[in-house]
Computed example of a mutant assay.
Amino acid sequence: MADHLFDAPLFLKKRHYVQELASLEDVFDLLEDWPEDERDTTFEVLEKACRMAAQGIFPLPAIRENVRRFLIKRHMLANIEEVPILARRQSDQNIGS
């Protein structure tokens, strides 16, 4: 599914951590784990669009935008500034100190 990578990842706020959604496969994992009692029409439409994207029928940038809107609606989209960037912290440290 390497050809199903988003241009830029989305970040999902979970209870105790932030999850990166960087590909269609990540979105399928999210949808698979979504609680059954919270699967509404919006969920079903997104799931169908993802299946169509996997078949090459629906454009991947549109999937990313729909996932972003889905997460915003549920107050689960993490702001990138809220996500700690490990690489930035590591690059600030000198080797040997």
Rank of each mutant, 00 (worst) to 15 (best):
residue 48 K to T: 15
residue 22 A to Y: 04
residue 60 L to T: 05
residue 45 V to L: 15
residue 85 I to L: 11
residue 12 L to W: 05
residue 44 E to G: 10
residue 49 A to Y: 04
residue 5 L to Q: 08
residue 9 P to R: 01
residue 3 D to S: 09
residue 30 L to I: 05
residue 12 L to C: 04
residue 85 I to S: 10
residue 67 V to D: 00
residue 92 D to L: 14
residue 18 V to S: 09
residue 29 D to W: 05
residue 72 I to S: 04
residue 8 A to Y: 08
residue 65 E to W: 04
residue 89 R to M: 10
residue 4 H to G: 04
residue 77 L to S: 07
residue 12 L to D: 00
residue 93 Q to H: 14
residue 50 C to K: 01
residue 23 S to W: 00
residue 41 T to W: 14
residue 60 L to E: 01
residue 70 F to V: 06
residue 93 Q to D: 04
residue 18 V to D: 03
residue 88 R to A: 11
residue 97 S to C: 12
residue 53 A to P: 03
residue 73 K to P: 02
residue 80 I to Q: 13
residue 19 Q to N: 04
residue 2 A to I: 06
residue 84 P to N: 03
residue 35 P to T: 03
residue 88 R to K: 13
residue 86 L to E: 05
residue 27 V to F: 00
residue 70 F to D: 00
residue 76 M to K: 12
residue 80 I to F: 10
residue 16 H to W: 13
residue 17 Y to S: 13
residue 52 M to C: 10
residue 43 F to S: 08
residue 57 I to N: 14
residue 29 D to Y: 04
residue 76 M to L: 15
residue 85 I to Q: 08
residue 60 L to D: 02
residue 78 A to P: 08
residue 69 R to G: 06
residue 11 F to E: 06
residue 67 V to F: 07
residue 48 K to H: 14
residue 16 H to K: 13
residue 17 Y to P: 02
residue 38 E to Q: 14
residue 59 P to W: 07
residue 19 Q to L: 09
residue 26 D to C: 03
residue 38 E to L: 15
residue 55 Q to A: 15
residue 1 M to G: 08
residue 34 W to G: 00
residue 70 F to R: 01
residue 73 K to E: 15
residue 4 H to D: 02
residue 72 I to W: 11
residue 28 F to N: 01
residue 67 V to C: 03
residue 35 P to A: 10
residue 18 V to I: 12
residue 25 E to Y: 00
residue 7 D to R: 15
residue 45 V to Y: 13
residue 16 H to N: 12
residue 33 D to Q: 10
residue 43 F to I: 07
residue 67 V to K: 02
residue 47 E to L: 11
residue 72 I to H: 10
residue 77 L to R: 08
residue 23 S to I: 00
residue 32 E to Y: 02
residue 5 L to C: 07
residue 68 R to F: 09
residue 59 P to L: 11
residue 33 D to P: 02
residue 71 L to P: 00
residue 81 E to F: 13
residue 59 P to M: 09
residue 79 N to I: 05
residue 19 Q to H: 05
residue 63 I to H: 01
residue 67 V to W: 02
residue 50 C to S: 11
residue 30 L to C: 04
residue 56 G to I: 06
residue 23 S to F: 01
